[in-house]
Design a protein around this nucleic acid. Structure first.
Lengths: 182, 182
DNA sequence: ACCTGAACACCGTTCAAGT
DNA sequence: ACCTGAACACCGTTCAAGT
């Protein structure tokens, strides 16, 4: 990839992140191009369509999730149940601060997740290892599975950035964590 | 309201429900009009815009939710904690079978909920009464509040109709219910 | 190789004309 | 009062021309 192309690629992603963090449903491709300082055609050269742009945000977020899970796995000091719960809390916080990616997660279709397939599979492997450890230590509810984690994180994500009396994603997360632990 | 106008109103809503249950993001207003057997202008005469159409779906769903909560309140036989949990299960099932309204819930903005304000306030009153009873019976987790219910239902809703390994809204719901109960 | 932006297609919304 | 649907505006996407 030519140097200018690589720079454009990054600029387009940065522009998308900034704009989607603002008023996500109203983001236009022309606007992304303008903010990135390129023509619309260039946006489409790098990302086949709008969904692909969102897919890349999701893929990068999974990479960040995985960094946290790996750190939790490497941390031999903490109680396994706490290590898992804290990793989920940190990941939730990261997502709460990234409205652009939340939008991609919630409104993106299959293709968005297909683009992050490798990273989400790695996520599941790491989550399974953490769950196994916590289970052995007797710190999880009997029927809980690693596969429940994406659902619960998706649920907590769906309450982020929404307003309403009593709406607080941290409370929601703790409710879910209580369901996960014994 | 004239008889033909009332009939059109119902037809438009029915058409919207059917179409939004199919491929929600692709539903067009022209298509709603065609299926309802009216002109597009008539759709707009009855509903100021697309969001208003979704708002009405949400409002009617809250009415159904409230029917269940009232029934649970009236049922003196069951344990209060079970009465609450079962009402939530029934409401979740209703929503799971109604993809059109799920779309309205998840992708609708503030206006969608503003349109259902009266019904959602009634929902909170009923939920608070059920929670109070279950709390007195010692059947809820210490910090749980009625205000947590919309968050948890929103979370479970966000996993409905999505596919993925292990994705099952009933499991997600039971996880949340375990967090709610002691 | 890669970039540009005018042009096209599609769909939400309006409004002049009709009953 | 209410209905109709052609017309308009907006925005995702393409592609011929450029470097």
């Amino acid at each position: 990839m030519r140097a200018d192309a690589r720079r454009n690629h990054e600029r387009i992603l940065a522009a998308a992140r900034e704009l989607f963090a603002g008023d996500p449903p109203d983001v236009q491709m022309d606007e992304v191009a303008r903010r990135a300082g390129v023509g619309v055609g260039t946006v489409y050269r790098h990302f086949p369509d709008k969904e692909a742009l969102m897919g890349e945000l999701v893929r990068e977020r999974f990479e960040l999730f995985n960094v946290r899970l790996r750190a939790a796995l490497g941390d031999a000091g903490a109680e396994p149940g706490d290590a898992l719960a804290d990793a989920l809390r940190e990941n939730a916080l990261g997502l709460a601060e990234d409205a652009a990616t939340r939008f991609a997660f919630m409104s993106g279709g299959e293709r968005v997740f297909a683009h992050a397939a490798a990273e989400s599979e790695e996520f599941m492997r790491l989550a399974e290892a953490l769950v196994r450890r916590a289970r052995r230590a007797g710190q999880l509810a009997p029927g809980f599975r690693a596969e429940d984690i994406p659902m619960m994180m998706c649920g907590v994500c769906s309450t982020m950035g929404r307003s309403g009396p009593g709406w607080n994603w941290r409370r929601h997360l703790e409710l879910a964590v209580r369901g996960m632990r014994g």
